[in-house]
Design a protein around this nucleic acid. Structure first.
Lengths: 232, 232
DNA sequence: ACCTGAACACCGTTCAAGT
DNA sequence: ACCTGAACACCGTTCAAGT
């Protein structure tokens, strides 16, 4: 059972807030699994009634979006504190360190990849994470095209996703979502600009899933084949 | 709205059966998403009451296990009909064809990977699928050790999973699950035997997730690095 | 043997009402 | 401004009862 962390004297309860609601939600998901996260259980954790939550969040969907964002922010904090040289051939160690650091955070929130997968593809924090990853590859001399393939190929490994990354349902609305804070996503924006130049009809929803899937698959198969030859 | 496919005259309704229940469940998930699959909706699809379902399946969990198995069986049917030479260097095309064929089936049941991920790790059909895949790699000269790494590395690509493959929760019970029809899983059993020989304390739950994650990650990074060098 | 109606303990959410 | 009680339309599931 959780007791209020607040030690202020008197009978006054800590007031609810969007932030407290989301932090409590993460706590429940961590300790009891995402299935245990119900509005009633969440209210109980906060010593309130379920209906009080609706003053601070619109609905449960917003809670799920919110906790995905909390974890993504935690990942970015850990990962941005890393300081690994990434010029030239060093890109590989830099990307490796970043992804392994992100994975450590995710292991503390095992429910997070599944939540990301259903809703967070376009969350600002997730976009920042991938922009930085693409930045490291650019430091290593990647073209935007290769960087783009690489993000797809790393896919699940980068953030625990299993399927497509930036696929915003029907493919529309993605550019708009980006436009808002484009100046903070130089690499993603640069990549999209080049793609738009090469293929004027393209949008962010443009990725050829089949081609990307095959790119990643072939990368793995060729790597395995080299190991096979080396061992025989 | 779905009308009964049965054309038999008379007022007699087609009786329910476990098979009809599962096929209806797959139909609902395909057409309306896994979220629309409720016991009441499922009964409606079959022209019965929700409570009638419980005579044919124990509970909803069994329905979910069941539909995962239906899709896995469909994959195995498609994939076993393939006849691609796999000796030596041809293993790669053989594995490639198989995985792409499996993916085509999964694209018809987009809800399936998520369902697999939560429950089907040890389903017989899933085990068969991976046994065959491992068999193709053996044809290509893979050691069991390399084949084992390869199954992890292909991971999500092989069946749309994002996380670990054979991880049966606490790691126990896996050997027992296999023992039942071991003679039909020659490759997996061979692999496990070798692992048991090398490490007598091991079980199927033994896999070092971190090591496997890094193996797959490095395979991709090294592949990308080669493409980078080639393009500069 | 197979199916069902009523009922229970849960969900998320609305809405009018409290302070 | 912030919180709540009663209520609604849903869930999965049990159990006694129907044919």
């Amino acid at each position: 059972m959780h007791v209020a962390a607040d030690t202020e004297a008197g009978p006054y309860r800590v007031p609810l807030s969007r932030d407290r609601v989301l932090r409590a939600a993460v706590r429940i998901a961590d300790e009891a699994g995402i299935g245990a996260l119900t509005m009633r259980r969440l209210a109980e954790e906060l010593g309130a009634e379920a209906m009080s939550l609706y003053y601070h969040v619109a609905n449960k969907d917003e809670v799920l979006d919110g906790i995905a964002d909390v974890v993504a922010r935690e990942i970015n904090e850990v990962v941005d504190a890393l300081d690994v040289p990434s010029a030239g051939a060093q890109w590989k160690t830099a990307v490796r360190r970043r992804i392994l650091a992100a994975r450590e955070v995710l292991l503390r929130h095992p429910w997070a990849p599944a939540v990301f997968e259903t809703r967070a593809a376009m969350s600002p924090e997730i976009l920042l994470y991938h922009d930085r990853l693409l930045g490291l590859m650019r430091d290593g001399g990647f073209s935007y095209d290769l960087g783009h393939h690489a993000l797809h190929a790393l896919g699940s490994r980068a953030l625990g996703f299993s399927q497509e990354l930036f696929d915003p349902g029907d493919g529309s609305g993605a550019d708009e979502a980006l436009a808002g804070f484009a100046e903070r996503l130089p690499h993603l924006v640069g990549m999209l600009a080049e793609i738009a130049h090469d293929d004027p009809d393209s949008t962010l929803g443009w990725c050829d899933d089949q081609a990307e899937f095959e790119f990643g698959l072939d990368l793995i198969l060729e790597g395995l084949d080299r190991l096979r030859e080396r061992s025989s």
